[in-house]
Design a protein around this nucleic acid. Structure first.
Lengths: 249, 249
DNA sequence: CGTCCAAATTGATCCATATCAACCTCGTAC
DNA sequence: GTACGAGGTTGATATGGATCAATTTGGACG
């Protein structure tokens, strides 16, 4: 069980972005069908992590970015004091590691929230490729810029909004990300624990719990453990006021 | 006075990064002396803004990134409700606009905090150039990644730290940025108002004021208006606990 | 040199959320 | 099935910083 599924042969599996259902979300979306092979050439596919396993941590030398294929990932910064700050949740089609492209080691720790498979993009090869493919380079700038914006939105949430507003914003963000993947935007299962939500949003677990039940009593959501149903999206949007955009990853 | 100084001729001045004292901080730091010309070819130099003038705002179509040459810039997001969230302060040698590379318009509003001159990098030309110059591309990734990290640090500050810790962290960040420019790290003048500090750090102005006087009474700093002297850097670092790195831009 | 307005400081009070504590629930192991 | 422990919920209390209000300072300008 602790044993990894032996999916990796000696030579890593060549990825087939062509067949991947996420190709319209992930890096391939930036490039033409006929150029896809060049990306496939550098990708290593098929690494699988069990819940709780680290994809990398802050002492790992930075080598690669990772695209989530299935499952989900939590990134966080661990301080010397042992405090943790969750910096993001990553779902299928999203790219992890963009915050680490300025140092020798990863800038954060990435942990699988459930059984998760990823595609690995070795950074040197990726940079080489983006140098040759302007659309891909443009897309990388786009993604990184978006991550800056997400983080600014989070900062805004943390400094200006109440507990209810923060949680409503998170629920809506998750909702729209499920929708992008053609899954139900109103009926999904949270990949993360209350604890992670609390940490991410700068709240105490107890507060998160209370807000969930309050929302439930007001008929905005129905929640049983990690199972969530959004009953009144409009009202949630009203709660968040200025956070209708996709914000807050 | 409202009239701009007529430094811009019909054809914009060609920049001379060669002679610029900031070339070891700004984009030129990434490239070889003999390739500098290619960067100079695309830069427009010499735009000057008076205190309070906008370099761009959220309705401006995104065309360029800007390097601060002298003075300083505040960026902020203005919500529909009119709320403002300051997202960063930018000092000479730093690049503004990296968060806007994923949309049609700028993602934030940039305002000169004092008389400020900037160099303009038209984004299309810059992307074209980074496609041809791997080191420059690498440096762009580096800068964007760093901005993500800064923003994460800010989020951390906002969600986990007390008013005192936040302010100490900001003072130390400014200090190290002055030091990079070979200015005094202990004796400088704040480019921003208390109000901007408060907004940036998610505090009320009154709280900022109180912490400043408390620090003063404890002998950590000496402050008269915007003039600040750090008397006990060690102690300030202790206050911030886990924020010794350059964090929090 | 006085006037005026924005910025900054100081004081008093209040509130949202943290904290502390107890209890419940559910999945897993035996 | 029963026991156990982590995760989640609920209640009672404490508190850091927001808010409201009043005052002071300082810079721009006539």
């Amino acid at each position: 069980m602790a044993q990894a599924i032996p999916i990796r042969k000696n030579s890593p599996l060549k990825a087939s972005c062509h067949q991947c259902s996420l190709s319209n979300l992930c890096l391939p979306l930036a490039i033409e069908e006929n150029e896809l092979e060049r990306l496939e050439d550098i990708v290593q596919q098929g690494r699988i992590f069990n819940r709780g396993e680290h994809i990398f941590d802050q002492s790992t030398p930075f080598r690669s970015c990772f695209a989530v294929k299935s499952g989900s990932i939590k990134t966080s910064i661990i301080t010397e004091g042992g405090d943790e700050q969750v910096t993001g949740f990553f779902m299928p089609g999203e790219l992890v590691g963009l915050d680490s492209m300025s140092g020798e080691s990863y800038a954060c720790t990435a942990k699988a929230l459930e059984r998760t498979s990823v595609c690995e993009f070795p950074i040197e090869k990726l940079e080489e490729l983006t140098g040759k493919m302007p659309e891909l380079q443009h897309h990388m700038y786009h993604l990184m810029s978006q991550e800056i914006q997400n983080s600014h939105q989070l900062a805004m949430l943390l400094s200006k909004n109440t507990a209810e507003e923060r949680i409503a914003a998170l629920l809506l963000s998750l909702s729209s990300r499920f929708q992008r993947r053609r899954l139900s935007p109103t009926n999904f299962s949270l990949p993360m624990a209350r604890n992670d939500i609390a940490n991410f949003l700068g709240l105490a677990v107890e507060t998160v719990s209370r807000v969930f039940t309050r929302f439930q009593n007001q008929g905005l959501i129905r929640a049983r453990g990690r199972e969530v149903e959004l009953l009144d999206v409009e009202a949630l949007q009203t709660v968040t006021r200025e956070f209708s955009r996709q914000g807050c990853q």
